[in-house]
Amino acid sequence: MTAMRLTVNGVQREIDVDPRTLLVHAIREQVGLTGTHVGCLTGDCGACTVVLDGRTAKSCSVLALSADGSAVDTVESLADGDDLHPVQQAFWDEFAFQCGFCLPGMLLTAKELLESTPDPDDAQVLAALNGNLCRCTGYNTIVSAVRKASGCATTCVKESPCRKS
């Protein structure tokens, strides 16, 4: 076991890991934040997404020790107490999740996109979401949530009588 340091959601943590320990397991099991999920451990699904030193990464494909001394922000960092981040709010309003297992990747990549590209077009939204699998929603509502969070008035899902305006 090797000792290492992580700043998780602004809080400094010291943890012990094995050289093979994945960052996702360190966060979930050593740090104890379970909002970051494990869906595949192959880098394909995106459920393990975190923000590592300011950029999104799939924490199943990062060795914990590679992140020694790094700052990690997880999905738990998005809301401020009971105040949801606008991206979270939009996802809720737009029914952009069902089981919610994919949310870490969806929310954090959406946030990263909107920070660099405040008014993305559809192609940019789709490219940003490309690394996240969702098996429940069929993605349409996720795309409209990202666009809604960007403040874009037009939405992608036409003719849906149920949608809140």
Binding site: G32, G100, F101
Partner: peptide
């Protein structure tokens, strides 16, 4: 079209799936 009642828990990572019980 009420929003999902477990929305806040899921969106903030508080919801506990089986692997989250440790």
């Amino acid at each position: 079209s009420a929003r999902k009642r477990d929305g806040a828990a899921l969106l903030t990572g508080r919801a506990r799936f089986v692997d989250d019980h440790q």
